[in-house]
Computed example of a mutant assay.
Amino acid sequence: MSTVKKTLTPHLPRQKRREVVENDEFAAFARRIIRAHGRRVATGDVEALRDLTALSADLDQAISEAVIGLRAFDYSWAEIGSRLGISRQAAQQRWGDRP
């Protein structure tokens, strides 16, 4: 007769909030890259237009992941909404239903 061992997933402690490092510079870099991509398409690279529009979906996904991550660090909807210039209710309605 074999015995079945049950494996319990240990509760992992919440991670500490990361110290803000170079986010302004990193965001500025990302904006420059996206604008450069737009200028490249504008010079006649019509094949790259689809890639440029796909960045919009990628950006939406990145924002969702960021909000979910901030919630995991116990940031409130009010704090998140404040940073986005929207109400806490609007932030919760937009991103609150996601796992």
Rank of each mutant, 00 (worst) to 15 (best):
Q93A: 09
I86D: 00
T3Q: 12
P10I: 10
L52R: 06
D60L: 04
Q93N: 06
S87V: 01
V4C: 03
L8E: 12
R88N: 01
R18Y: 06
L12R: 08
V4P: 01
P99W: 09
A48M: 06
L49Q: 08
Q92D: 08
H37N: 12
L70H: 02
A72N: 04
A57V: 11
V21Q: 08
L84R: 06
G38M: 08
L59E: 10
S2M: 15
R17F: 04
S2E: 11
E25Q: 08
R17V: 05
P13I: 04
R94K: 02
Q89G: 03
A78N: 13
A28C: 05
I86M: 04
A42H: 01
Y75A: 02
W95L: 00
I33G: 10
A57K: 10
V20R: 15
D45G: 13
Q92N: 11
R14Q: 09
L49N: 07
A91C: 03
Y75K: 05
A78H: 14
I68N: 09
R98H: 15
D60C: 05
T3R: 14
K16L: 11
I86C: 03
S87Q: 00
R98S: 13
D45M: 14
S82P: 07
P10Q: 13
A36F: 05
D60P: 01
R32T: 10
N23F: 14
R40H: 13
A72I: 01
Y75V: 03
E65M: 08
M1K: 10
P99C: 11
L8C: 07
E79I: 00
A66W: 07
W95M: 01
A57H: 09
D45A: 15
L59K: 12
L12I: 13
V20N: 12
E19K: 07
E79K: 00
P13V: 05
F26H: 15
S56P: 06
R31D: 12
R50Q: 06
T53P: 10
Q92M: 09
Q92H: 10
P10R: 15
G38W: 00
L55R: 14
I68K: 10
I33S: 15
F26M: 15
D60E: 06
E22N: 13
G69V: 01
D51I: 14
N23R: 14
L84V: 02
Q61F: 08
D45L: 12
F73Y: 06
A78I: 07
E65G: 09
Q89T: 03
V41M: 08
V46F: 13
R50P: 02
D51T: 12
T7C: 12
E47T: 07
Q92P: 08
A54N: 11
I68T: 09
V67G: 01
R40E: 14
A27G: 09
Q89H: 04
D45W: 13
R94Q: 03
Y75G: 03
E19N: 06
